[in-house]
Each structure stands twice: as structure tokens, then as C-alpha cells.
Design a protein around this nucleic acid. Structure first.
Lengths: 195, 195
DNA sequence: TGTACATCAGTGAACGCGCGTTCACTGATGTAC
DNA sequence: TGTACATCAGTGAACGCGCGTTCACTGATGTAC
């Protein structure tokens, strides 16, 4: 065996990282392998040293992207008292910065529709990642009579991704900003416990 | 001029109708012109008698699809007393039937992400359609202190599309059903005024 | 420690395919007489 | 009313291009001696 095992693993990781970014930016079908490999500093020919197919890469990129988001949320939680966490997630997620940088942002608004049309492997990867996201958000969700934290977490995730999706699709900048602002207000009203 | 003017217009309309369906099913980049024309009972060569480019068709299909949804909502409203309208929209939208038939369903969960990456024309078409959807939902939205009906309408739309998007992307049928059910419960709780 | 060899991550040309678009042609039907 | 012509919606072959995938090759580095 030549090159250390570590070397190959790190290269593979770089491909997944950069592909996660490229796929979120351009969509699951909107960018080619040659471009994704170039983003990782490689040429397209080497792709099949690391993956069996394009679909395998997409599935890995989805997992990677969702893990990234989960980790960033957990990081954020560690800096913030429990009762402020939900508010913090909402405020971080519903920003112009997030709207304008899908490549660095959450997988849900960027790729959910593509994943819905994808193969079983991608959709399985998504379901696993989503369970994790639900679990993390549930920690921060307000407890109320008549609904579990898990139920609330699902509602929060859906609303977060819906708001960013709509804001991104509008050509009209004013409307897009309004969607972000209205969405943020509504979410604060519904999901942040007064204190 | 041969064939009546009406004939050409009806053919064009048929292409837009069927393309709206095909594009929602397979994504804005997931289906070719030849297939879309075949859905309308034509061959691909005739396409440029009706449209300047593929992008023009996509923009028209987006408008058509959003109009369809708006009209179906207005139809529904006419059968139902005002205080039940919001609940009816929620219950109609968040069904397994809607989740499992993107081709017949709402443009938002099917195409919003693709539109966000599309050209200015498609995004303009989307913004126009979205304004209409907001206006219609606003009619049915509960009025509350501290938030306009328009603001509430935006929140409702985002949450509806988010829930269906997440439910569609999960390979795990159980999780998908749970998302629909939790989403429906949460929306009823937040947006349906008790009476 | 130094040298010859083996390994395999990565390169770049080539492939077959489907795509959006173009174009010469067809043939059904409206119009002019 | 009947006939010859003009129109143009629609056909299907052809185009150039980019894609995912394959493959013969390279050359940097680990290993054996």
C-alpha cells in the first residue's frame, strides 16, 4: 500500500466536503463530476478511485451536510442557556446570509426536492440525517400541553426550511426580505417561550 | 393563416399543462423537451413553434401551476364558511395523496429550489404567483393581535410547503407519515381559530 | 542507510448517450378565384 | 359550389455539447532487501 491510508481518506473527505457545497449551490443535477472534482483540487478521472457512482457521492454529501448543520447547532447550544436556544436557531437560520449562500447553508431548503426524486440510498441518508436534526431541535423546543417536543421540532424544521426556500425563489428582493422577516416574527411568536 | 388561431393556442396550452405536470414530477432539470412534448401528444421538433426556449416553457409552467393552486383554493373557499377555510386548506395540502403526487400538486414543494437556481424570468414568474397565493391565503388567515393576515399567510405557506418537502424526501415511510401528521397538528394548533 | 521494485491515487483521452436547438420538409386546412 | 394555391403547425433527422463512466497510463511514495 502506497500513500498512507490517511491520505486517501483525507482526499475522499475533501471531495465529499466540496461536493456538499457544490451540490447545495447548484442542485443535485446542476453540477457535473468534473466540476465537483475540480473543487476538491482533482481531475474527474480519479473519481472512481473513491466512489462507486455519482449517486453514492450525492448520498454521502447529503449525510455530511446534515451532520454539519447538527454539529453547528450543538455548538451553538453549548454557548447559550436552554431557554434561548430555540430563538438562537431561528435567528441564525432565517438570515439574508443563509438565504444568499446555499452552498454553506442547510441541506433542507437546498436539496430536499432533489432528494425526494433521488434513489433509495439518498433518501435513506436523508431520513437518518433528519432524525438527528429532529432530535437536536427537540432539545431546544418549548414544551407545551398537547404537543410533544418532537412534534414541535418537526414543525420548526418544516417552517425554517419553507421560509428559506420561498425567500430564495423570489426574484423580488423586497418580497424575499419580507418573507424572511415575517417568517422570523411568526416563528418567534409561536415557538419562543416568553421569559 | 392556416388552422384557426384557436388551434395553436389550445396546443400551446396543452404543452404548458402537461409540462407543468412533468416538471413538478421530475424537477426542472429532470425531464427533457422530447418527453414533455410527448406528454402533450407531439414530437419534440415542433417545440419552437410555440416557445423561444426551454426556460420560457418552465416559466410558463410555473405560472400555470401556481394559478391552478390559487384557483383550487378559491373554489374551495366558495364551498366553505370563512372560519373553516384555513383548516380546509391545511387538511387538503397535508395529505398522503398530495405528498405522493407531486405532478398534480403544488408548485412550491416541487420546484421552489429549482426556481431559486433558475433565470430571472422564472423567478419573476414565481414571485408574481407567490403574491397571489399569499393574497388568497391571507383571506383565510386568522386575525390576531401583533401580526397581520399577510404575515400569517406567509408563515402558513412556508410551513405547508416545508412539511410536504420533508415528507417527500424521507425514504422512511413511517417518519414521512409522522411528519405529515405532526405538521397538520401543529398547523391546526397555531393557525386554526377555535370555534 | 541506500537502492530497486511494487503499489495505487490520480491523470487525461476516449466512449456512448441524451440533451436543447436547428432545419428542410410535409400535409392538413383556410383563402382566393 | 368546386378547385388551385398559400400558409404554417408539426415531423423527424441532424448538430454540437456536456455528461457519467471507462481505461491505459504515470509518477510519487511505501516496502523489501
Amino acid at each position: 500500500m502506497r500513500y498512507t491510508k490517511d491520505h486517501k481518506l483525507r482526499t475522499r473527505r475533501r471531495i465529499v466536503e466540496q461536493s456538499a457545497r457544490g451540490l447545495r449551490t447548484h442542485g443535485a443535477q446542476g453540477v457535473g463530476l468534473a466540476d465537483l472534482m475540480r473543487m476538491a483540487g482533482l481531475t474527474h478521472g480519479g473519481f472512481y478511485c473513491h466512489f462507486e457512482s455519482r449517486d453514492e457521492l450525492v448520498a454521502e454529501a447529503v449525510i455530511y451536510g446534515m451532520d454539519q448543520t447538527v454539529k453547528s447547532w450543538l455548538d451553538r447550544f453549548s454557548q447559550i442557556p436552554p431557554e434561548r436556544r430555540c430563538e438562537a436557531i431561528i435567528d441564525d437560520y432565517l438570515t439574508a446570509k443563509h438565504r444568499d449562500n446555499p452552498g454553506k447553508g442547510c441541506v433542507l431548503p437546498a436539496l430536499a426536492a432533489d432528494i425526494a426524486r433521488g434513489g433509495l440510498d439518498v433518501r435513506r441518508a436523508f431520513a437518518t440525517g433528519l432524525e438527528q436534526m429532529i432530535d437536536v431541535i427537540a432539545i431546544a423546543s418549548p414544551s407545551r400541553a398537547g404537543s410533544s417536543q418532537r412534534e414541535t421540532a418537526i414543525a420548526i424544521l418544516a417552517m425554517l426550511m419553507g421560509i428559506v426556500s420561498l425567500a430564495r425563489a423570489c426574484a423580488d428582493r423586497e418580497l424575499s426580505d419580507e418573507i424572511l422577516a415575517s417568517g422570523r416574527d411568526a416563528m418567534r411568536r409561536h415557538f419562543v417561550q416568553a421569559h
